[in-house]
């Protein structure tokens, strides 16, 4: 099994998880790199992407697992050949073998940028720090079984706030990403619910890095 670390930026953030799977399958075909297929009545190319990314989010730390038929080229060449056949915004950074077991992937560091068109509200950083030091913050979570309440505080390992400019406020958040996971946009939902005066006009979100439980970079 091979693993590729890739980023998803620009307009590629609007590709869904399924779109991305299809894109990779076709890119492998275009690059003349045949994927192995699953056994069974309806063979499927063996590619999988860890931690599906929400539509609209950027990421610099996505993982694609795959396996190839026949002779495997040098990893650098493999990366370059694939990058030539991918679309703008999807770029493979590294290809390697023997990646860590996905079950050890525990934490996600992400960067949220809150945009305030009329300027950051007064004392926003302090208010947000106070808000996120509460013991519990529950927001609605839409799941397969309908809407339920999710307490986001236990899922956050750390969070910090910083005014990046007069209109943009950055959040650096480390959150659990498996069993259970926290969608970083839930932080914004909490702000809208508990501090509506701090509701931003727009939010950008980017996955920066992934870590093990011990906060070592996960690969």
């Amino acid at each position: 099994m091979l693993r590729a670390l890739f980023e998803k930026t620009g307009n590629a953030v609007y590709l869904s998880h399924l779109d991305l799977m299809r894109l990779f399958q076709r890119a492998f075909k275009r690059a003349g790199l045949p994927l192995t297929h699953t056994q069974g009545f309806n063979p499927r190319p063996s590619v999988s992407i860890a931690l599906p990314l929400s539509l609209g989010m950027e990421s610099h730390c996505e993982l694609l697992d795959f396996s190839l038929e026949g002779e495997i080229p040098d990893y650098g060449e493999l990366r370059d050949r694939l990058n030539e056949k991918l679309v703008e915004g999807v770029r493979i950074l590294r290809v390697y073998q023997d990646g860590e077991k996905l079950k050890n992937l525990a934490l996600l560091q992400c960067r949220l940028t809150l945009e305030y068109d009329g300027g950051i509200p007064q004392n926003a950083v302090e208010k947000l720090e106070a808000l996120f030091s509460r013991d519990s913050l529950t927001v609605e979570k839409k799941g397969k079984n309908g809407v339920s309440d999710q307490d986001i505080v236990p899922l956050l390992r750390r969070i910090s706030f910083e005014a990046e400019s007069g209109t943009e406020l950055g959040i650096d958040a480390w959150a659990h990403c498996q069993n259970p996971s926290l969608n970083p946009m839930q932080l914004v939902a909490a702000i809208r619910k508990y501090a509506p005066e701090l509701s931003p006009d727009f939010v950008r979100c980017c996955r920066m890095e992934i870590f093990t439980e011990q906060e070592e970079v996960f690969r």
Partner: peptide, 14 residues
């Protein structure tokens, strides 16, 4: 990010 299937509007395909 607010509309259904936004990839329809961005171009950038292979």
């Amino acid at each position: 990010p607010r509309v259904q299937k936004p990839a329809r509007y961005t171009g950038g395909e292979w």
